[in-house]
């Protein structure tokens, strides 16, 4: 555990909680892609199956349970509790175009051809693109609530901090996992455009809106 890893995890946790609080406080999930949230629930479920088989640390187990719990709570709020506010017409990204290729890639490129390992690899690849329906939705409507941009910023920051964590681990522990690193770099790149808009608009007090 290093400082980048810890702050990365906390940033991830902050993102998840910001999103839950936004929906809960406003009683609305307008502007939120339910499809991205379903993908994240699948990501956590397939990656954290090892909760049942391997104990790593109390920290590790607690965070996994919290991430999974929050992911399902978010999906529940979008598709059940506040379904009337869900903007399904704008959430039109075709997720099968992500899930099918990602599944194929996980079967082809993995560390070990075993059930658990392929599910883990699938979750790593899927996480790297799971935010696309959300970014697609924003590009379609041309705007995002400020609180939604804070959520996205925390999520992107978590990925960027994980890259620093991997650099650290490579130098000080000789540890690296190429699958996680490549997928993590791809994921971080997807946020670059958003980071730019966040810094130039949202941090200056403006709402995030895209030119028509």
């Amino acid at each position: 555990m290093n400082i980048f890893r810890l702050t990365g995890d906390l940033s991830h946790l902050a993102a998840i909680i910001i999103l839950l609080l936004k929906i809960w406080k406003s009683r609305s999930c307008a502007g939120i892609s339910g499809k991205s949230q379903i993908l994240f629930a699948i990501v956590f479920t397939t990656r954290y199956l090892d909760l049942l088989s391997t104990f790593i640390s109390l920290y590790n187990s607690c965070m996994k349970v919290i991430y999974i719990g929050c992911a399902y709570a978010t999906v529940y709020m979008i598709y059940m509790k506040f379904r009337a506010t869900y903007d399904g017409n704008h959430d039109s990204f075709r997720v099968e175009f992500l899930v099918v290729p990602v599944g194929g890639l996980a079967v082809l490129i993995n560390h070990d051809f075993s059930f658990m390992e392929i599910l883990w690899t699938f979750s790593i690849y899927l996480e790297s693109v799971a935010i696309l329906p959300q970014l697609f939705m924003i590009s379609k409507t041309g705007e995002a609530e400020t609180i939604t941009t804070h959520y996205l910023f925390c999520l992107g920051l978590y990925r960027a901090l994980y890259i620093f964590n991997w650099v650290w681990r490579f130098y000080f522990e000789g540890f690296f996992d190429l699958i996680a690193i490549v997928a993590g770099v791809v994921q971080t790149i997807l946020y670059c455009d958003f980071f730019y808009l966040y810094v130039t608009k949202v941090l200056k007090g403006k709402k995030l809106s895209l030119p028509a």
């Binding site: 090892d50 391997t54 790593i56 590790n60 991430y67 390992e117 883990w120 690296f176």
Partner: peptide, 10 residues
């Protein structure tokens, strides 16, 4: 063998 390491990252 990296993959045999415990997956301690979240």
């Amino acid at each position: 063998h990296q993959e045999s390491k415990e997956k301690d990252e979240l």
